[in-house]
Structures are given as C-alpha cells and as structure tokens.
C-alpha cells in the first residue's frame, strides 16, 4: 500500500448547507443505500433537497454554479447524526469535499470521515456565523482549514478551530486510515490466530 497523504491543510472554495441536526438520511437518502459501490454517491449528496420528484434542480447551495468545485462543506450543529453507515461521509468525499466545518459533529460520522482523511473541525458559534457570512457574501473566497494550527481562514478572517488531538495526529502523520498499519503486523496476526486455534494447525493463511 502506498503511504497515506499527510493532511496538514485543506484549501478551496466552500459551500454552506445551513441547518442543525442534518442526519445521514438527508445527506444521502436511504434508497441510495442499495448500491454495490460508493462511486455513484457523489451526485446523490443531499439529493432529495437538491432535486424534486421529477429530478429537476431546486434552489440549493450545492446547485449554485461553481459549487461543484468546492472542497469545504460548512454546516451547523450535530452534523451527520443518524445511522452508522458510511454512505454519508463517502458521499461527501465523492462529491469532492475534503474538509467539513460545523458547530459540532455526531461521533460516528466524525470517525468515519476522519478514516477517509477528511478533517472535521468545529468553530465556536459566533465564529461559525461569521465564516458563513463571509462565504455567503463571496462564494469564491478561498477558505483554508489548517489542521496543524487548528484554525480556519477565509480571506482576511481568521478563526480558531477545534479538532481532537487523536484525529489531528492521525491526519498530520498520515495515519488516518488504519489499514496500512494493520497490514504491517502480518506475523503477529498469524501467531495470534494459531494461538487461538483460528487457523488449522500447520496452515498459514
């Protein structure tokens, strides 16, 4: 496996999806869970809020021209609550977003997103409101999520951001996806499996 990218900062334009308690079913409607790959989930992001029953676009921040280039998603409190299925963070990732800024995150969503290398940082309420205002005033403003310094910059504005040490360390050191580390321990896995009788005697997997 190739080494993971060290996620120090994410830069790009941002989109604001306002609201609190945005759950995983709103992020990607349940009927899209019937899929064998996550590949199609990008365009299905917030589908029922973006399109009407006939598939015609509704007014939505993600339907604005230029939104498809955005790399940073901004929302409200308790973002990503609901089910534990990974379809929601996958959908955000496949749609091109590489960081999420919110007032707070649901725990499982936060973990699933971090495992994709997508930093989820929180801002204090006033700062979040100021950031949203700045982005809504100028959708082309460059936003930077600085994982290392734990801050968010939007044009001239600079806001302190919160990110737990564990997630920050994993992103900075390129350990956000555990698979490479898990694969390293091949001999120890083999030994433990034999000790517990999980492999037939003498066999090697």
């Amino acid at each position: 496996m190739s080494a993971l990218e060290k996620v120090r900062a994410v830069r790009g334009t941002a989109v604001v999806v306002p609201g609190n308690d945005i759950d995983t079913d709103r992020i990607v409607p349940a009927r899209f869970l019937k899929c064998v790959t996550f590949d199609a989930l990008g365009p299905q992001l917030f589908y029922d809020e973006r399109y009407d029953a006939d598939g015609a676009p509704k007014p939505h921040p993600l339907n604005r021209p230029g939104a498809e280039r955005a790399r940073i998603l901004i929302s409200g409190m308790n973002f990503g609550c609901g089910s534990s299925r990974e379809h929601a963070p996958q959908s955000i990732h496949k749609a091109g977003f590489r960081a999420v800024i919110a007032g707070s995150f649901a725990e499982i969503f936060f973990g699933n997103a971090t495992t994709l290398g997508v930093p989820c940082v929180t801002l204090d309420a006033e700062d979040l409101a100021a950031l949203r205002a700045a982005v809504e005033a100028d959708p082309e403003v460059e936003v930077e999520v600085d994982v290392d310094a734990r801050q968010v910059r939007a044009g001239e504005h600079l806001f302190p951001a919160h990110l737990p040490d564990g997630a920050r360390g994993a992103l900075l050191e390129g350990r956000w996806d555990p698979l490479a580390e898990l694969l390293e321990a091949n001999e120890a896995i083999e030994a433990a499996a034999h000790r517990l009788g999980y492999l037939p005697k003498g066999a090697s997997a």
Binding site: S84, R85, E86, N112, L116, P178, L182, A185
Partner: peptide, 18 residues
C-alpha cells in the same frame, strides 16, 4: 459488535481491526 464499511474492508484484508 457492528462495524462500518471501511472496517469491513480492514477485517477482510487483515482479520483485525483498530
């Protein structure tokens, strides 16, 4: 216990989890 899809991948690939 239940796990997410990336963890299903981890277990398929290594029979272990973090």
């Amino acid at each position: 216990f239940g796990i997410g899809t990336s963890q299903v991948r981890d277990v398929l690939a290594t029979q272990t989890l973090a």
